[in-house]
Design a binder for these strands. Structure first.
Length: 898
RNA sequence: GGUCGAUUAGCUCAGCGGUAGAGCGCUUGCUUCACACGCAAGAUGUCACUGGUUCAAAUCCAGUAUCGACCACCA
């Protein structure tokens, strides 16, 4: 909109975000606006994106999380920092492999084993190529200002070398070891899982009561309660609490296991709770974590009676052999019942661990796995405890500390194919022996039988370990492995590591945050980030977690189609509270869109007045109170935003931006000066109002830019606030105030706005809200008021406000007393003494109450003595104001008689 | 069982010692030359409960109740 006068009709009445957003994103990319320059001399600001699953699709959690990151990144650029927001994706081992396996089954009717490792991995890569770009494009649609040239993937060549390197180092340090342990086994994915990947869910199950005959005393029984009769074949003992008087006599003796028939010992162990069930517990060391521990303490045999897929492995018992564990459970109960061993069955609620990905109950299982003893645990704990890493909200620091305080070794091996293969090689001749070895350690490496590292030595034949690593074993390296190759101290790393802010959900404190701190310490000798901002979890209006299966998760892309990316961003940020979960309501996104439209229309109004002003500040003496006032308020906004940014209070930021634009700028300032934009307005008046509009709007758009990046670019360009080819996103925020010394006249504006409100109010009370022809007569007007009478009349919806101290109001003329004078609303046929008396009496009563309240407080010596002086002063001022008004009112009321 | 949150207008949430707030929704009136994705006016609250500290408590402390998250877990 450079020099021709705009015709309002050329512009659509409502803002249409879709095309605008697409165009500006392309322009930013074209101009390389997102590049983080490692050679820059500006101070660095960096964020690494929490990498979404490569084949994932965008959900509202991502929108919240990435909008926050984008806001921080864009604001940092405006503050003159060199910003790197480093994006990428995660290979998500189990999740991705499961999807591809399902596709293989559905399309070709084959399992991964049937087509073999190599062919299967080819299919996964193909899947990744096909679906990998989706979420990245969705993030672009949202407006994310990531440096896409640096996009990383956890299975990239350079990244994979980091994974191998880290594994090798930790192995050499003796922190990685292999052994047969009780792990969480997923019978569907056929892999071990870490404790963090197991989700406990309350289940309604059954508690089966059985009786076992005492071997040396036939006819005598011990009663046992269990939820898992199908594992009975794996029982090797019955345990009771040593203090339990009912069963104490049997300790050391034997009872008869029903099937397969065997004599098993009764042992005493403190773990047994005498209060639960019968107080006697069957011990199945192979299939229960607690039983395993008891078994270890008492040196019991381990009888594994399950196949990896959860079917029964017990050829001795053809009735159950081969059955699925849950089918077998019912069958086992039936057999017990037939033999008269089953006493009763009770309904029972217990917690069962489920596989996070496959959503089936996990099976505690003993298997050969790789484990990691976490490095730098103390350093990681101290970093947060000492505030070197600052958590927001702070309370998550406690959760973090608790987990680190009870940390268990991490099971890092997965029996999957999609992932980083464990970089351990066995000398072919000894491979079989070594793979089955009870433990494997440094000694084997020293002996030259195993090799740990990316590529085995050329000499000899080597066989690689079959397992891959847990996905998080690559994710925990993310902040530095994305910035440099192994052994390379890259310029990027030097410039941007440690990163400034990490924005993530509190649900992955253990999975990711804590582990990154440890890895950062161990491998870069520095903390990976300075601040961690934990976002809220997005829920539906009923408070339920968003989930695909519930169908309560709106597609952000649909929302962007409907409301625009900016509308979605702003709407979501407005409702995202600092500490707790956010309940998502589409109506809020609609508000975001409405807000965008409001700003757009304010600009549209301004375009009536034609060409750009060049953003030159007019001489101070030409500014009217409304101009001074809005400049002052904008300065106030800048300051309060700065404070809120420093504390990451996003809801405060959006509230302040919303309030300023809608209430202060549009409802007050713009209403006061809008007539200046019309053709009939005097040239100089118009020039001044246009200039102030432009100065304020240009700066406001800059302040708003991190939240609504596309809209602000569009309007800045259209309004001619920036030369062609320049961007709001690249412009630095100027320091200092627009109006450093605020003249006293600035305060007049608020008084006019307040009085106008009272006058509109008065009109409405007499059902005159729509009458534009009324006049107000003011007595005892403030000395400057008549200069602003025209604006006051316009804002009040009146034809005029006239001063006339000699005005003799007919009795019963409605009136309002404000800080600017006594305003009468004389109108023939309207005057009704009685109703005006009643109205005034009501107002006087209200005022009296206020005055009494103030007085009571001020007469309390303890208040005057103890309260802060400024609080007392405020109270005094308030009292004086009320009292003055009250007296005026009373006087005028008295004139009406009784 | 342990830890940490939440409880304020019909709804979603701010406020966290000094007169109870916003947006939506609702009522009424407006198609007024930026915007009905709008304008103006209005109604609506024992700030969960019970005690305590304080001149003063929605706000601080203790306890109770309800809801939620995380950790642990009993077969």
């Amino acid at each position: 909109m450079s020099d021709e006068t705009a015709d309002l009709n050329e512009l659509p009445k409502a803002y249409e975000p879709q095309k605008v957003e697409e165009r500006w994103y392309a322009a930013w990319l074209e101009a390389n606006c997102f590049h983080g320059d490692e050679e820059s001399s500006k101070p660095p600001y960096s964020i690494v994106i929490p990498p979404p699953n490569v084949t994932g699709i965008l959900h509202l959690g991502h929108v919240l999380n990435n909008t926050i990151q984008d806001i921080l990144a864009r604001r940092a650029r405006q503050e003159g920092k060199e910003v790197l927001w480093l994006p990428g994706t995660d290979h998500a081992g189990i999740a991705t492999q499961t999807k591809v396996e399902r596709q293989l089954r559905e399309e070709e009717g084959k399992t991964r084993r049937e087509i073999g490792r190599e062919a299967f991995l080819e299919k996964v890569w193909a899947w990744k190529e096909k679906h990998g770009g989706i979420i990245i494009n969705q993030l672009k649609r949202l407006g994310c200002s990531c440096d896409w040239d640096r996009e990383r993937f956890t299975m990239d060549e350079d990244y994979s070398q980091w994974v191998s390197h880290v594994f090798t180092e930790l192995f050499k340090q003796g922190l990685i070891y292999r052994g047969k342990r009780m792990v969480n086994w997923c019978p569907v994915s056929l892999t071990a899982l870490s404790d963090e990947e197991v989700i406990m869910k309350p289940q309604r199950s059954k508690l089966y009561y059985m009786k076992y005959e005492v071997v040396d005393s036939p006819g005598e029984f011990i009663e046992i309660a269990t939820t898992r009769p199908e594992t009975l074949m794996g029982d090797v003992a019955v345990a009771v609490n040593p203090k339990d008087e009912r069963w104490g006599q049997y300790v050391g003796r034997k009872v008869r296991r029903p099937f397969p028939d065997a004599e098993i010992p009764v042992i005493a162990d403190d773990h047994v709770d005498p209060e639960f069930g019968t107080g006697a517990l069957k011990i199945t060391p192979a299939h229960d974590k607690a039983d395993f521990e008891i078994g270890t303490r008492h040196d019991l045999e381990i009888l594994d009676i399950l196949h990896p897929d959860g079917t029964i492995n017990c050829p001795e018992l053809p009735d159950l052999d081969g059955l699925d564990r849950f089918v077998a459970r019912k069958k086992a109960a039936k057999i017990l019942e037939e033999r008269g061993i089953l006493l009763k069955v009770e309904e029972h609620e217990n917690n069962v661990g489920f596989s996070e990905r496959a959503d089936v109950p996990i099976e505690p299982r003993i298997s050969m796995q790789w484990f990691l003893k976490y490095p730098c645990v103390d350093e990681a704990a101290n970093a947060v405890a000492d505030g070197e890493i600052k958590y927001r909200p702070e309370r998550w620091a406690k959760t973090y500390a608790q987990w680190l305080g009870n940390i268990q070794d991490w099971c890092i091996s997965r029996q999957l194919w999609w992932g980083h293969r464990i970089p351990v090689w066995y000398r072919k001749e000894k491979a079989f022996e070594l793979k089955e070895a009870e433990s494997l350690a440094l000694a084997d490496m020293d002996a030259g039988d195993i090799y740990v590292g990316e590529v085995p030595p050329a000499e000899g034949d080597w066989v690689q370990d079959e397992d891959v690593l847990d996905t998080w074993f690559s994710s925990w390296l993310w902040p530095f492995a994305t910035m440099s190759k192994v052994g390379e101290n890259s310029a990027t790393l030097q410039k941007f590591y440690p990163t400034t802010d990490l924005v993530t959900g509190p649900d992955i404190i253990f999975f990711w945050v804590a582990r990154m701190v440890m890895a950062g310490f161990r491998f870069e000798e520095q903390l990976p980030f300075k601040n961690v901002f934990f976002t809220s979890i997005v829920r539906d209006l009923k408070g339920r977690k968003m989930s695909k299966s519930l169908g309560n998760s709106p597609d952000p892309v649909d929302l962007m189609d409907k409301y625009g990316a900016d509308g979605l961003r702003f709407g979501l940020m407005r409702i995202a509270p600092v500490g707790t979960d956010v309940k998502f309501d589409e109506a809020q996104i609609e508000e975001g869109r409405n807000f965008a439209n409001k700003i757009y229309n304010a600009c549209r109004l301004r375009l009536m007045a034609g060409a750009g002003s060049g953003l030159e500040m007019p001489p101070l003496e030409k500014l009217r109170p409304y101009h001074l006032d809005i400049l002052t308020k904008l300065d106030g906004l800048s300051e309060s935003l700065e404070a809120s940014f420093a504390e990451y209070k996003f809801n405060e930021l959006t509230a302040a931006l919303y309030e300023f634009l809608w209430s202060q700028f549009c409802d007050q300032f713009l209403e006061a000066v809008k007539r200046d934009f019309r053709d009939e307005a005097d040239g100089e008046t118009r020039e001044v109002s246009v200039a102030i509009f432009d100065i304020v709007m240009a700066r406001y758009l800059q302040l708003l830019h991190p939240f609504m990046p596309h809209l602000t670019e569009e309007l800045s360009a259209r309004m001619g606030y920036l030369p062609d080819g320049e961007f709001v996103m690249k412009a630095e925020l100027p320091a200092g105030k627009l109006l450093p010394d605020v003249p006293a006249e600035a305060a007049y504006a608020n008084q006019v706005y307040e009085t106008a409100g009272r006058l509109r109010n008065l009109k409405a009370e007499y059902n005159l809200a729509t009458r534009k022809d009324v006049k107000f007569v003011v007595k005892k007007a403030a000395d400057w008021l008549m200069a602003e009478a025209d604006v006051l009349a316009f804002l009040s919806g009146a034809a005029a406000v006239e001063a006339d101290d000699s005005f003799e109001a007919p009795k019963g003329t409605p009136l309002a007393v404000t800080g600017l004078g006594e305003f009468f609303l004389p109108l023939e046929g309207l005057i009704d003494v009685e109703s005006e008396k009643r109205r005034l009496d009501k107002e006087i009563e209200k005022l009296e109450k206020e005055v009494t309240k103030c007085l009571k407080k001020l007469q309390n010596p303890k208040f005057v003595e103890n309260a802060k002086p400024e609080v007392v002063q405020t109270e005094k001022d308030r009292h004086a104001t009320w009292l003055e008004k009250l007296n005026q009112m009373r006087e005028l009321r008295d004139a009406l008689g009784d």
